[in-house]
Design a protein around this nucleic acid. Structure first.
Lengths: 110, 110
DNA sequence: GTAATGGATATAAATCTCTAAATATATTAT
DNA sequence: ATAATATATTTAGAGATTTATATCCATTAC
């Protein structure tokens, strides 16, 4: 049972572990409102099919939710804690930058 | 440049996206103190080599740091924000549980 | 009907994970 | 000092998972 919960936590992180999915969340966070898929395609500059797959992963984890309005599908962030988490990551990276480690490590790895 | 930062954020989440690594952090969080690899092996019940690989991933992201003391290597969490993040995930899962969605979805997927 | 929007599936390439074997380093015994 | 032991990391490879592209399907609007 405790095993299950740990596994669910890592699944949650796995859902955030892709640049496109982070960008989706930051775009949705921008104006707390709903954003349609069509706008996300433009703003993120990714293929519709690819974007749809990433949205599906975030939906499955209940991180975002969607509503159909006519032709459009509107997406929004479901839990404000997600924004807190993104903020904390930002904070950690900022501290790592101060130590001058983050960027170098990142560049070294690719 | 903004691209780089987004990529670093997703790399951060990727580092947390494994049950063993979540368990490592929760074990390190338990008594704020340092914990040696030997204790982690016992508590988590994983192969030493495997554990070492997971520790290496967390170290590379600067999420944990280590010190050698005699034969032992001691590990600790480097940024308290990591604990905040784990707490927020817990909170989100709790809410999802209330909606009765989380567990079913999780079980359905494997 | 046709066009527009978005979701679902298949597949090939890239990445991640675990096991086992090889290395490295510090301590203890002799 | 040397050898033996204990602790931890690194490397190599097979197998599993993710990702991006292309394609097909479903729904709504006209």
């Amino acid at each position: 049972m405790e095993e299950q919960i740990v596994s669910m936590k890592s699944d949650f992180f796995k859902a955030l572990a892709h640049p496109t999915r982070v960008r989706i969340l930051e775009r949705l966070a921008k104006n707390g409102e709903e954003v349609c898929v069509c706008d996300l395609i433009e703003d993120l500059g990714v293929e519709q099919s690819n974007l749809s797959q990433h949205l599906s992963i975030l939906r499955k984890q209940q991180i975002i939710s969607s509503t159909k309005v006519g032709l459009r599908v509107m997406y929004r962030i479901k839990f404000p804690e997600v924004l807190t988490i993104l903020g904390n990551v930002q904070k950690i990276l900022a501290q790592q930058f101060k130590e001058g480690e983050a960027l170098m490590r990142h560049l070294a790895d690719r």
